[in-house]
Design a protein around this nucleic acid. Structure first.
Length: 316
DNA sequence: AAGACGAAAGTGGTTGA
DNA sequence: TCAACAACTTTCGTCTT
């Protein structure tokens, strides 16, 4: 990674060097597998520790309870009532610990209403269940929290428009997750999403299209570039490979060979070539495996890339 | 022996009548 | 709704390292 800096600056010094920041981080790509942002200019990992905004739900023992650093629920849309919930407990004390003076009857009545209104409408009930499912699915897919938030927002909107009626919560949630991934450029394939649900890819795809249409959401076609960091990382390759692979993909796009092709396959081939170039060879099979395509597809894309760049075995 | 390459047949999804 | 179609996969054989 460091060499890249050196390379860059030494090239740039041609035009009278003012000390630029080593990496402006203008083009960042999210490596969702590891919760990192990777800079396309330098391949540098920008931020590794994404803050975990999830609540600290669990405290099984009194000691654990004491150790919980944060208080209060997170104010997020992934909690069905936005995190606003008041509980009237059974100690008959108010928040300051003073005894509540009202008649017992009154308190009992209050509690009853509280229980009744906490999950007020069927919509709230639906959302509560959906958020549960979203949390589960999000964990299995290693989704960063902002994606889950977006999925939650989409789902909420879907419910409000009555799109869930007649469909299973699970399938709409899965579709919402998929939409959020596409929107936020966190590459997850339809297959990956469906693998963790009981819903087939077909149903999810149908719901996905429905959401796009009904909620008027636009998602760009998947950019192969988005897959690159994930593949590179999975292969344990240096960040320079990311940079090079992205360059290759951009040139390839200009030559118009990327249309209609599986983006994962394209990314895989680019990574394969880039790895070869930096002398960190990986087999086609390895690359294909982590990219979720077959060896043959990698090969075909590779052939097309090779034609453009006129590279035979050499060419560094 | 393992990887790279290519041909041929099969599969799931999209498109256009 | 059906057929044509393109892209991808599976399978298998051959060549190279």
């Amino acid at each position: 990674m460091e060499n890249t800096h050196v390379e860059n600056t030494s090239v740039e010094t041609g035009k009278e060097s003012k000390p630029k920041p080593p990496c402006p981080h203008e083009k960042l790509v999210y490596d969702s597998e590891h919760g990192e942002y990777v800079c396309l200019e330098t391949g540098e990992v920008v931020e590794e520790k994404i803050i975990d905004e999830r609540p600290e739900w669990r405290a099984f023992t009194p000691e654990e309870r004491g150790r919980r650093a944060r208080t209060g629920g997170p104010l997020t849309t992934t909690v069905h009532d936005m995190g606003f919930a008041t509980a009237i407990d059974y100690s008959n004390k108010d928040a300051a610990g003073r005894k509540l003076m009202g008649k017992r009857q009154e308190l009992i009545k209050l509690r009853k209403w509280q229980a009744r209104t906490r999950i007020l409408t069927s919509m709230d009930r639906n959302l509560a269940q959906a958020m549960n499912e979203l949390e589960r699915l999000g964990d299995l897919l290693n989704l960063p929290s902002h994606v889950k938030e977006e999925a939650a927002r989409i789902y909420r909107e879907a419910v409000e428009k009555g799109l869930v009626r007649g469909r299973s919560i699970e399938s709409v949630i899965a579709a919402a997750v998929y939409v959020a991934c596409r929107e936020l450029k966190v590459p997850r394939s339809l297959d990956e999403v469906s693998r963790h649900t009981r819903i087939g890819r077909k149903d999810i795809a149908r719901c996905y299209r429905l959401l796009l249409r009904e909620l008027d959401i636009k998602v760009g076609t998947t950019d192969p570039v988005d897959y690159v960091p994930r593949i590179v990382h999975a292969l344990g390759l240096p960040g320079t490979v990311v940079k090079r692979a992205v360059e290759l993909l951009n040139v390839a796009r200009e030559h118009g060979v990327t249309g209609g092709k599986d983006p994962a396959g394209l990314a895989a081939a680019a990574v394969y070539v880039a790895a070869l170039e930096v002398g960190e060879k990986r087999t086609q099979k390895e690359v294909a495996h982590v990219a979720g395509v077959t060896e043959v597809t990698v090969r075909n894309r590779y052939k097309e890339l090779a034609k453009i760049f006129g590279l035979d075995a050499n060419a560094v």
